[in-house]
Measured scan of single mutants.
Amino acid sequence: DVEEQIRRLEEVLKKNQPVTWNGTTYTDPNEIKKVIEELRKSM
């Protein structure tokens, strides 16, 4: 579920933690925001 994935990513973003997405680890909050944007567009 895309909305659930977005929620999880936003939680990680709030905690300022790195997130691994599709085999890539993002540590930059701006990169994580881009991933969230892409997910929103795909909905």
Rank of each mutant, 00 (worst) to 15 (best):
P29M: 13
E38W: 11
K15Q: 13
Y26V: 04
E4Y: 08
E11D: 10
K41I: 09
T27I: 06
G23D: 14
K15W: 09
D28C: 03
V2G: 05
R8Q: 14
K33N: 06
T24G: 03
Q5R: 04
N22I: 02
E10P: 00
N22F: 14
V35A: 03
D1M: 10
L39G: 00
L39P: 00
N16Y: 03
I6C: 03
N16M: 08
E11T: 06
N30A: 14
G23F: 01
N30M: 14
V2N: 05
E3I: 13
E37S: 09
T27Q: 05
T25S: 04
K34N: 06
L9T: 01
R8N: 09
V19T: 03
Q5L: 14
E3H: 10
T27A: 06
M43R: 10
I6P: 00
P29I: 06
K15V: 07
I32K: 00
V2Y: 07
R40I: 10
K14E: 12
E38K: 08
N30Q: 12
I36L: 10
I32G: 01
S42C: 11
I32P: 00
V12Y: 14
N30C: 11
P18Q: 10
I36Q: 01
D28K: 03
V12E: 14
K34G: 07
E37K: 05
K41R: 11
N30G: 12
V2L: 12
N30W: 13
D28M: 02
E38F: 10
Q5A: 13
R8K: 15
E10W: 04
E4I: 08
G23A: 01
K34L: 10
E31S: 06
G23H: 02
E37T: 06
N16P: 05
E38P: 00
P18V: 09
N16E: 06
V2H: 07
E10L: 08
V2C: 10
K34R: 13
V19D: 08
K33F: 07
Y26Q: 01
L13N: 02
K15T: 15
T20N: 15
R7I: 07
T20I: 15
I32Q: 00
S42Q: 13
L9P: 00
R40C: 04
S42P: 04
N16S: 08
D1A: 11
K15R: 11
M43Q: 12
V35C: 03
E3A: 12
K34W: 08
V2P: 08
L39Y: 03
S42F: 09
I6E: 01
T20G: 05
E37H: 06
V35T: 02
I32C: 02
L39F: 03
L9W: 03
D28T: 05
L13T: 04
V19Y: 07
L9S: 00
E4N: 09
V35W: 03
G23L: 01
P29T: 05
E38M: 14
T24C: 12
T20A: 07
P18L: 07
N22C: 14
L9H: 00
N16A: 09
I6M: 03
R8P: 01
T27P: 02
E3P: 09
V12Q: 15
K41L: 12
I36H: 01
G23E: 09
N22L: 10
N30I: 12
N30Y: 12
E11A: 07
L9M: 12
G23Y: 01
P29R: 04
R40N: 03
R40Y: 11
S42M: 14
K33D: 04
Y26P: 01
V35G: 01
M43Y: 05
I36K: 00
T27D: 11
P18K: 14
Q17I: 14
T20Y: 15
E31Y: 03
E38Q: 13
M43A: 10
D1L: 12
E11G: 04
N30D: 14
Y26C: 01
I32T: 02
L9Q: 00
E3K: 12
I6L: 06
L9E: 00
R7Y: 04
T24P: 00
I32L: 09
L13D: 01
E38I: 11
V2D: 04
K34I: 08
S42G: 09
K33Q: 13
K33P: 01
K15H: 12
Q5D: 11
L13S: 05
V2W: 11
L39S: 00
E11H: 08
N22T: 02
W21Q: 10
T25E: 13
I36Y: 02
T27K: 04
N30P: 03
E11K: 04
V2T: 11
N22K: 05
V19S: 02
E4D: 12
E11L: 05
W21G: 08
D28I: 02
I6H: 01
